[in-house]
Design a protein around this nucleic acid. Structure first.
Lengths: 119, 119
DNA sequence: TCCTTTGTTCAAAATTCATTGAACTATTGA
DNA sequence: TCAATAGTTCAATGAATTTTGAACAAAGGA
C-alpha cells in the first residue's frame, strides 16, 4: 500500500531545490540518507518539529518526488527516491548529501535541536 | 570596485538551494553558466522579468553567495562564483547545471501523448 | 469493544516571498 | 550643464509558506 507519487520523469528541478532549501526538510533527507535504505516512520523525525509540522514537511518532500511513502499499519514508512532522483538529475542528490556532511557544515550556524543529546 | 560578498566558507547550503529553487533565478544562473565566464550586466536578463524584479533576484543570488557583482561604470557585471561554490559544495553546481540542460528539461512541460486517454 | 498509537486534515495566524511602479543615485556622453 | 542610461531602493500588494492546536481517521492491542 502506498500513497500517490509523481512519476520519476515529472520530477521538477526547481521544485526539488525549493523543497530542499528548507532546513527541516534537508535534515529529514539527511536522516533518510543515513539510514541505509531502511525507511523511517514519521515518528522518527519528531526531533525536528511538531507532529503536525513534520507531516507538512513530509508531504512537501513527497510532492516534490524526493521521498516515497508506504503505508504499513498505522505507520507510514518514508524512504528516499534515490534511484529516481539520480536517473532524472545525475549526481544531484549525492552532491547535496555530501554538502550536508559534517565537514561541509562546519561553518553553518548550528542547527538547534528541540531536544536531544546536544542540549 | 565590487559590492560586498560573503566569504566562500560561509555560503550556506539551504540558502543556496532556496535561491536556486526559484525558476527566474535558476534561469539567470543558467545564462551565466552558458556565457563562458563572460560576466553579464543586469540588462542582459530583461527577458526574464522587469528591471526591478531582476534587481531583486540578483540581490538574492548575490546574498546567497552564488554570484559576484562588479561595478563597472553604470553597469554591474554579474558572474557565477563557480570556484567558490565548487570548493564549498563539490559537484553541486555542476549537477544542477546538468539538470537544467535541455535534455534534462525534456520532460518538464507536460508531454502530450500522440494517442491516449488524455487526447 | 475501548483505548492507544500513528499520522492526517482543517482553519487561523504569522511570516516570508515575489512583483510592481515611483522615486532615487550615480555614471556617461553630448 | 543637461539629458540619457543602468540599476537600486522604497512602499504597497497579493500570494505562498510555515507553524500551531483542535479535530479527525485508521489500525492494533488489551
Amino acid at each position: 500500500m502506498s500513497l500517490p507519487h509523481i512519476a520519476a520523469d515529472q520530477i521538477s528541478l526547481p521544485h526539488v531545490l525549493a523543497a530542499l532549501g528548507d532546513p527541516t526538510r534537508l535534515a529529514i533527507v539527511r536522516m533518510l540518507a543515513h539510514s541505509a535504505d531502511m525507511p523511517i516512520a514519521c515518528g522518527g523525525f519528531t526531533d525536528l518539529g511538531s507532529k503536525t509540522n513534520i507531516s507538512y514537511h513530509l508531504a512537501k518532500l513527497r510532492e516534490a518526488g524526493i521521498t516515497r511513502t508506504e503505508i504499513a499499519g498505522t505507520s507510514r514508512l518514508i524512504s528516499l527516491r534515490s534511484a529516481d532522483l539520480d536517473a532524472r538529475f545525475p549526481g544531484l542528490l549525492d552532491s547535496i548529501l555530501l554538502a550536508t556532511s559534517d565537514a561541509a557544515r562546519a561553518h553553518d550556524p548550528l542547527p538547534i535541536p528541540a531536544t536531544g543529546v546536544l542540549a
